[in-house]
Amino acid sequence: MSVSVIRRIATPKKAVATAALAAATTGMLFASAPAQAASSGSDSSAQAIAHQMIPDSAQYEAFNKIVSHESGWNAHATNSSSGAYGLVQALPASKMSSAGSDWKSNPATQIKWGLDYMNSRYGSPAAAWNFWSTHHWY
């Protein structure tokens, strides 16, 4: 086989291998992101609801950071090992029923419960974020 024939064969193989590697890497990046499930509202509408419920920008940003880390704004996120559920990863999940009977599917109910929890346990979402930043849970 001549060198030019080998180059013509090797170049497409290299391109395919590079594309496969890129696709695999992208897949791994998507796989490591929080799962997104269809809900009564999308993640952006859940964020808009939270923004309306938390008018103080510093408190909203702290709440946003926690929810982004905990569930990626997926109202149906479930931790397979602990059973924690929802935007704020309540454990047990049924605790959110104190905020409303639609806690399994309504981001507003989950946000209300999460805010109540953060305010009662830590004093504010910002204080909850400070704790989360150190411990990686809240």
Results as ranks from 00 to 15, higher is better:
27 G>H: 05
27 G>A: 09
28 M>D: 05
28 M>P: 00
28 M>H: 07
29 L>S: 07
29 L>V: 12
29 L>H: 07
29 L>A: 09
30 F>A: 07
31 A>E: 03
31 A>K: 04
32 S>G: 10
32 S>Y: 07
33 A>W: 13
33 A>Y: 11
34 P>I: 03
35 A>P: 12
35 A>T: 14
35 A>D: 14
36 Q>S: 08
36 Q>M: 04
37 A>N: 15
37 A>Y: 13
38 A>R: 14
38 A>L: 15
39 S>R: 08
39 S>P: 03
40 S>Q: 13
41 G>L: 15
42 S>K: 00
43 D>L: 13
43 D>I: 11
44 S>T: 12
45 S>Y: 11
45 S>D: 12
45 S>E: 14
45 S>T: 11
46 A>W: 08
46 A>Q: 04
46 A>K: 04
47 Q>D: 01
49 I>V: 15
49 I>M: 15
50 A>P: 03
50 A>R: 01
52 Q>A: 14
52 Q>P: 00
52 Q>H: 09
52 Q>G: 13
52 Q>V: 10
52 Q>W: 01
52 Q>Y: 09
52 Q>C: 08
53 M>R: 10
55 P>I: 01
55 P>A: 07
57 S>M: 07
57 S>V: 09
58 A>K: 15
58 A>G: 13
58 A>W: 09
59 Q>C: 04
60 Y>G: 00
60 Y>K: 08
60 Y>R: 07
61 E>A: 10
61 E>D: 12
61 E>M: 11
62 A>L: 06
62 A>G: 00
63 F>S: 02
63 F>M: 06
63 F>Q: 01
63 F>T: 02
64 N>L: 05
64 N>F: 10
65 K>I: 05
65 K>H: 08
65 K>Y: 07
66 I>A: 04
66 I>R: 04
68 S>H: 04
68 S>C: 03
69 H>C: 11
69 H>E: 12
69 H>P: 01
69 H>N: 14
70 E>N: 02
71 S>A: 07
71 S>C: 08
71 S>W: 03
71 S>E: 08
72 G>Y: 01
72 G>N: 03
73 W>Y: 05
73 W>N: 02
73 W>S: 01
74 N>Y: 02
74 N>G: 01
76 H>A: 13
76 H>Y: 13
77 A>M: 11
77 A>R: 08
77 A>E: 09
77 A>S: 12
